[in-house]
């Protein structure tokens, strides 16, 4: 074999080698792509099932909260109305009987209102603003503290899953404020921060050291829940200075 032949062989084998290398590269790319695709699909399924689980938990919790509310209403409100109606019907005076009839009518209306809350259909018909108003009104009516709502926009068109999560997170944030912070005032503000909509829940209660990690607490759960719908949960608090929760809505 002379040097010229050697060089020709080098050229041929180099070309074949590069061709082989590229074939291996492309086939490897397709295999890796397939693998990543499968991993991605698995991850997506996991995220989806976690999302569904979270939504189910939220629905259960909202129903539990609703049942507690209904129980309280039956005992404190409707029970009282029925007792009063019974007393009025026991009287021989016609005006008392008429009053009893009115009270009975009022009780029937209250029962109708409560029955609507037993399933979660109300979630679809109510806007977040209306829900917040109801919650704040309920707190105010108990005489626990003063409440106020400021809204720069009306949150109506939201997907059901986002609405459920927001309702639950707002509900839980308000419950926490009442149970642990004992504030004189709770303020909620709906405003736009740049391109994103935010809900600010602020109380002037006793506050806590928010520099401590949230892991394991209810707040951590709320944060995770906001993240499942692509939103954000941010909490700032200091001892004696109240608590401020910022819920950033998904785009």
């Amino acid at each position: 074999m002379n040097p010229t032949e050697d060089q020709i062989y080098v050229i041929i084998f180099s070309t074949l080698f590069l061709g082989g290398l590229m074939s291996t590269f492309v086939v490897a790319m397709v295999f890796i792509h397939r693998q990543r695709q499968a991993q991605n699909r698995l991850k997506m399924d996991q995220v989806k099932s976690e999302h569904e689980k979270t939504l189910l938990n939220i629905e259960n919790e909202i129903q539990q909260e609703t049942l507690t509310h209904i129980g309280r209403e039956l005992h404190d409100n409707i029970g009282q109305l029925l007792s009063l109606a019974k007393l009025n019907f026991g009287s021989i005076k016609p005006e008392k009987i008429a009053e009893g009839r009115d009270i009975l009518g009022q009780a029937i209306q209250e029962v109708r209102g409560l029955s609507k809350q037993l399933n979660l259909d109300w979630v679809e018909s109510i806007s977040i603003n209306e829900f917040i108003e109801q919650q704040l009104e309920r707190i105010q009516n108990t005489g626990f503290c003063q409440t106020s709502l400021e809204a720069d926009f009306e949150l109506i068109e939201l997907p059901k899953d986002q609405k459920l999560v927001l309702i639950r997170v707002i509900q839980e944030s308000l419950n926490n404020a009442i149970k642990h912070a004992f504030p004189d005032k709770i303020q909620i503000r709906l405003h736009e921060n740049g391109m994103r909509k935010q809900i600010l829940i602020k109380d002037n209660g006793k506050g806590f050291d928010s520099s401590q990690k949230l892991n394991g607490s209810g707040m951590f759960n709320l944060k995770k829940r906001m993240e499942t719908i692509g939103g954000e949960f941010y909490l700032t608090s200091a001892v004696g200075k109240g608590t401020e929760i910022t819920l950033t809505l998904p785009n």
Partner: peptide
């Protein structure tokens, strides 16, 4: 993610890039 949702064997961009890759590789030395 946008590519991971797709089948590369049905993507014309994949075949185009592959054919270009082979064209330039196989003709490199020659």
């Amino acid at each position: 993610k946008a590519y991971l949702d797709r089948n590369p064997l049905k993507l014309l961009s994949f075949w185009q890039v592959t054919s270009m890759l082979f064209t330039y590789t196989l003709t490199y030395i020659s």
